[in-house]
Amino acid sequence: MPATTTGDVAALLLGGAEATSRPVALSPPVRREGAVPALALEDFSPIGSGAPAVSLSIAPGEALTLLAIDGNGADLLGAAVAGSRSARGGLRVAGRSIRPGSCLAFRAAGGAFIPADRRAEGLVAGLSLAENLFLRRPPGRFTIDRAALATSAADRLRRFGVRASGPDAPARELSGGNQQKLLLARELEPLPKLLVAIHPTRGLDIASSGDVRARLLDAARSGAGVLVVTADPEEAQELGAPVRVVYRGALSPPLPASTSLAELGRFMAGLAA
């Protein structure tokens, strides 16, 4: 494509938003050199996407943003890492080699996952909030300790700011923002080795979005590896983590979060060489 149009395209993509440069609000996460990577991909590609194989690594305590216009395979890549899509290639979570395409193995290695479609793939709408929080390991040995379930659920709902009538309310009654907070409450406790979050703030109001982003960065600061997939360049800036833009399945080199929206836009449109 002729170089003369690149600026126009980027401006078009971003709706002229490049003028507003946002401060990187949060301090960069602590990076622990020499630790076993929270995530290591080697020649990894989702099956059926036709995307080139990618390699990348995220250290514990580090966050990485995958930024892409929808349809470029960033969300497929994220879902494949979490085992919810089949893939081929090398996948290691916290040092453990995992067969791609298995949510079970991903979880066993210490992975956590916030899927793009929280209604279909995140929450079980008909179960209560408490049951959703403790799907895998409800309190109690052979039978569920209902009292313990209710108190620890109520405690967690409060700490994660989920607004609901109580732990026994069905999950389907929550608003989008509260559903996402509920998912975070489930996925971030106990702290995972790696968190994969796809479009974590899509469809949420501004307050909820800020809250969700802060939780993700908190997780990284506490030592988890965090992989965020987003289509929103401003969100990439606000997260303050290194950004890799995905275009037709291929990764850009790591860009600092302070990269201008115009520059990010050029990468997203595949116009940066």
Binding site: V124, G126, E131, R136, I144
Partner: peptide, 19 residues
Amino acid sequence: LALRAVGEAPRAARAAGLP
């Protein structure tokens, strides 16, 4: 609980790491 979750929302149960 796991059975009910799988029956209600198979994809969510799978993504949550239930067998």
